[in-house]
Design a protein around this nucleic acid. Structure first.
Lengths: 189, 189
DNA sequence: TGCTCCTGCCTAATAGGTATAGGCAAACCA
DNA sequence: TGGTTTGCCTATACCTATTAGGCAGGAGCA
């Protein structure tokens, strides 16, 4: 009777994989127990409850995504940085839809403040330094970028652009270009 | 023993109210049965299953929202129409968060094609007529508007802008202005 | 080597949600 | 008035979440 060696970390990772395969909603304690070939209550030694599991996956995804974005943006500026930033989000969402959905989980303020979510905000601001916007315009712009990218990605994942031309990639490029020129114009105002 | 007189329509309406009060996720057959003081299986004469209920609420919300948007946009053009369009979405989401969430439910292609979703797309295109964009720019722009508005509203509902200045309303206005000027610039290209 | 404790997974049990099968009585209709 | 239909009911089965408490095997100590 070898023990499977469950840990919160392994469960979180497995939960993230399960989310990508079956959707974030399909991430249940039961499904995870099946995956480890273990009885359901065994997981409660490692996880407070199913919400705890979801939060752990969310935090994991936020970290992973922040790392990717940071990597993509490193050494770039201006339009290049903006495009890299945008593409990093979109690619992560396409590659890991379940984790991306997890990253959108609403966290309570303290948890959010201690999460990689703050790095995301910092990186967005860093991108905008290339466009020298004053406050409060910079904040407005951060919110706009977050809205567009999140909105586009979530519509695309929901299949909103599947059944019509032009391809999602074209619209994406057009939008990134548009945002770039918008921010450049705004900065000269 | 007077019968409560359940109908799919009344159940859908009650489900929409329940969604606004307790969240779309809280809309269950059980909760709805409690609300009508009726046993759970009674609802299955009127609804195929719980997914059917959710879809009905989604279709209802799409209709209601399309009506509001149509009303808001009527008789306006250009920046005015864009702002009215945007505000109609945002106000609906703030007033009826559960219905708004319902309206974002992923529908299968046939259902979507028969839903008020197509009116939404048509109205977005109508707004853009004021900016004379060619294809494929018009489609890109429709997607961008959908992304920004949906993204902003969903971030705002998730509480993303609660704990920091400036107020969500200011950013919203700034974004609508920005989109207007962006579209005006794009049209002259 | 043997004892003890503790950890980690187990069984048992409760509660709530989803869904189906089949019953019964009120309401409708001829 | 009697038959049929309709609409809500009971009974039942299964799934998920969660808690309580049990047991065995490995770690540490004598």
């Amino acid at each position: 009777m070898e023990r499977p060696g469950l840990t919160p970390e392994r469960l979180t990772r497995a939960g993230a994989e399960l989310a990508d395969e079956a959707g974030f909603d399909a991430v249940t304690i039961s499904a995870l127990a099946r995956r480890f070939d273990v009885k359901v209550p065994s997981l409660y030694s490692h996880l407070r409850n199913s919400q705890d599991l979801r939060i752990r996956i969310a935090l994991f995804a936020l970290e992973e995504l922040a790392d990717r974005v940071a990597d993509a943006v490193a050494g770039r500026a201006g339009r290049d940085a903006l495009a890299a930033f945008a593409d990093a989000y979109r690619e992560y969402a396409r590659e890991h839809p379940g984790r991306y959905a997890a990253a959108r989980l609403r966290l309570d303020p303290e948890t959010a403040a201690a999460s990689a979510g703050v790095r995301h905000a910092q990186m967005a601001r860093a991108i905008l330094r290339g466009y020298d916007l004053d406050e409060p315009a910079a904040t407005h712009a951060v919110r706009m970028l977050g809205s567009v990218f999140h909105g586009y990605v979530s519509l695309e994942l929901a299949g909103g652009f599947e059944h019509s031309a032009p391809a999602a990639q074209e619209s994406w490029d057009w939008i990134v270009d548009s945002l770039d020129s918008l921010l450049r114009n705004r900065s000269t105002t």
